[in-house]
């Protein structure tokens, strides 16, 4: 397991990265934390002509709140922010607790020390945690090429297993999570055979409850049961406007299956993924509800 030959560029700026990507004819690949790319290189499943290392692009790292003056604004996580940093970030814990909960399930301490938030989004494994939580948080990504920067909601970003809307000449710049009004609760549940493994199935939920105890925000996303992480809009619609409790939630989950088209591998079959999606959705929603309070 030794990589094929490639050229290497240690980029110092975003401009340098996008220029390299632009000149690369699709043969140039961005190296962030390397926790997914390095095995692919070693197994020669990826054979880029050029590897652009973004670990020294200072502007690609960090977590901040933008547009805070207006009150809502957004939480911005730069792509090369380490998962370990994100996990420890008080800003993320405060403004996107769902993401903190999700990252706690990602890999192990050693891999989180290198792995990045953007790398996980760029790889787009259909069962991985960060894309799933971000999707449930109505997040956006920024993509930059030499032509400029575009913003894309995650709902439009994931196309399929390891396939996204990112063009070959674009770098994933940052993740943008809108700051939510009011109190919202977050729930994240997954099942994997061993702790720290890729999830077989995962569920992320956000619930908002107004002062009357009525649900005013519901987000539910399922990973590992489709070619990409999926929002379950039909369920969200039914939950919104309701006074929620465990019975109410359990009663609204029957439509999850219709939104999912799971595949099968040696870790689980399609029927398992569908049934367990519902189980985990219920757990995640209940956890979110409990946090949302009335």
């Amino acid at each position: 397991m030794k990589p094929a030959k490639f050229e290497y560029l240690r980029a110092e700026s975003i401009d340098q990265v996008v220029q390299a990507l632009d000149q690369g004819d699709g043969e140039t690949i961005v190296l962030a934390g390397g926790q997914t790319l390095m095995p692919m290189l070693a197994m020669r499943l990826a054979r880029p002509a050029m590897v652009v290392d973004i670990n020294h692009v200072a502007e690609l790292s960090g977590v901040e709140i933008l547009n805070e003056v207006e009150g809502d604004g957004e939480l911005v996580i730069m792509a090369c922010t380490r998962q370990a940093e994100a996990l420890a970030s008080p800003l993320i814990q405060e403004h996107a607790p769902l993401l903190s909960k999700a990252i706690a399930f990602v890999g192990h301490r050693q891999t989180r020390n290198r792995g990045t938030v953007g790398g996980s989004l760029a790889h787009a494994d259909p069962a991985s945690e960060i894309p799933l939580a971000a999707l449930a948080l109505d997040a956006w990504v920024s993509l930059r090429s030499v032509a400029g920067t575009r913003r894309l909601p995650l709902a439009d970003y994931f196309h399929g297993p390891m396939m996204t809307a990112r063009a070959e000449n674009e770098i994933l710049l940052s993740l943008h999570i809108p700051r939510a009004p009011g109190t919202r609760g977050a729930g994240f549940h997954e099942v994997s055979e061993r702790r720290g493994d890729f999830a077989v199935v995962a569920a992320a939920a956000v619930i908002g409850v107004d002062e009357r105890g009525v649900c005013d925000h519901a987000a539910l996303a399922i990973g590992g049961a489709d070619g990409r992480p999926r929002r379950i809009g039909a369920v969200e619609d039914k939950l919104r406007g309701q006074r929620l409790d465990s019975v109410a939630i359990a009663g609204q989950l029957s439509e999850i299956g219709a939104a999912l088209a799971p595949g099968a591998d040696q870790h689980a079959g399609a029927a398992y993924r569908l049934r367990v999606a519902r189980v985990l959705a219920e757990r995640a929603l209940l956890e979110a509800l409990a946090e949302a309070g009335p």
Partner: peptide
């Protein structure tokens, strides 16, 4: 053959 890697052949970690 489907289990050539340590991500597919699952040996217990300390958590198991």
């Amino acid at each position: 053959f489907l289990s050539a890697t340590f991500a597919d052949y699952l040996m217990p970690s300390v958590h198991e």
